[in-house]
Design a protein around this nucleic acid. Structure first.
Lengths: 239, 239
DNA sequence: CGAACTGTTGAGAGGCTTCAAGCCTAGTGG
DNA sequence: CCACTAGGCTTGAAGCCTCTCAACAGTTCG
């Protein structure tokens, strides 16, 4: 049974049994030997909330896999405004684009929670790609998922109103991060970040959220977002 | 020297020396044997202008590579409006997403010109992926290019004005399809399609184009688009 | 406890869409 | 070859959605 305890260059003492590589579909494709070589060469890095993992325009040679926490992946527009492209969580890959193309990063990534990443150096990833098709295929499927979501998002942002997009984004967050027993979204997100996901300004997003509250679709106690009528939200989102 | 003349199932007589597989970077990665097997199993398909190649929601088992012509890849939004995601031309791949994930197509593709495609059946592509890392890597790099462009486009469409996006899109078309000796865009594109690329309605796009003409940045004789001041356009695009 | 950040609401301006009407042009059929 | 017609192109007017600017309340954290 492989656990990160076997990891060669364990630099952080955070690792415990909550975090197991074999929980992650991608790594299930590896043989015991490959796994051993991987762990011998990879590094587990932890990031405290709000710390930057990499920045647009920087070079980072390797692949990151999220083991724990949430990573915000975003781009800065011409006017300095953030556009959030996705939130990556356990099992998700980040930084693979510049790995494959040897270009500079075209996005930035920031820890949204206290986050633990698995960093695999470029030559190891490339070696695995060469020798293990299952691993490569799994990575390609992940890329496809992102492409599909990008295509959907481009169409939405070009054609839907802020109200529709906001409803849709709330439902996406609900699907990705889940809700607790009180129907409250598990991820805590600021209004500004929600606006930066939806592709609008904070004030507009707040206005729409207030509408949703007045229509009894949401409750908004403090920073929580509680779902009260998912069916109607889905109708508004027009998915 | 491999040419398509060697192709096994040559169903169309269109093939001539203009179209050579070895012109395409992706296929340069294949060995002579792989190339032979590829040509033995693949089909060259031709599509007349405006004919549909595949439709959103359909299943198409295989990979298409554009040999000649231009393919419009788009998505239909909730209101029935097209959002153009990209134009594929010689050497570009289409339809690889559903190939890798075994899902239904999430976009539609239509021949924009008289177009010739190379269709490789799924099992052959998968076989090549397994055995030839160069081929796989080339494909992954292509996917990365699309992801990068998607990320940029999402940020632009969320943050820039129609005027800025229109200028940028014209410059992108100029880079991708080139201009003739009179500085006219080589691709002929309707105002509606331009609007569907930019993510706006036809009327708004036309108004912006008229502005550009009045500011001596463009000439618009008939259906042509002639560039007169690329520098200023670039400034407006705010890249 | 106070500073800095986040959330909220209002008012006003402006960009973009919608609807409507007419012109142009490319392709078709007689 | 020409007339015709459908589809593409263009402009105007009106109104709505969204953004901007501003002020203030609430919250968090050192």
């Amino acid at each position: 049974m492989n656990t990160v305890v076997r990891s060669g260059k364990r630099i952080q003492p955070i690792i415990n049994n909550d975090i197991l590589l074999h929980d992650i579909p991608l790594f299930k494709k590896l043989t015991e030997d490959e796994m051993f070589r991987l762990e011998l060469n990879s590094v587990i890095k932890s990031y405290s909330k709000r710390s930057v993992i990499y920045r647009e325009g920087s070079r980072h040679s390797g692949l990151y896999c999220v083991l724990k926490g949430i990573v915000k992946v975003y781009k800065i527009g011409g006017n300095g405004k953030q556009q959030i492209l996705r939130f990556a969580q356990k099992g998700d890959l980040i930084g693979y684009r510049s790995l494959l193309t040897n270009e500079l990063a075209c996005t930035s990534a920031k820890a949204y929670d206290d986050t633990v990443l698995y960093h695999i150096p470029q030559h190891i990833v490339m070696e695995l790609f060469r020798q293990n098709w299952g691993f490569t295929h799994e990575t390609m499927k992940f890329m496809c998922k992102e492409l599909k979501e990008s295509n959907m998002f481009i169409t939405d942002i070009a054609q839907k109103s802020v109200r529709e997009r906001a409803a849709e984004m709330l439902l996406i967050l609900k699907d990705e991060f889940g809700i607790d027993k009180h129907n409250a979204l598990k991820i805590t997100i600021t209004r500004e970040d929600l606006a930066n996901m939806v592709g609008t300004v904070t004030e507009s997003l707040i206005r729409v959220m207030s509408e949703f509250r007045n229509e009894n679709l949401l409750e908004l106690p403090g920073r929580k977002i509680v779902f009260r009528d998912v069916t109607k939200l889905r109708a508004i989102a027009n998915i």
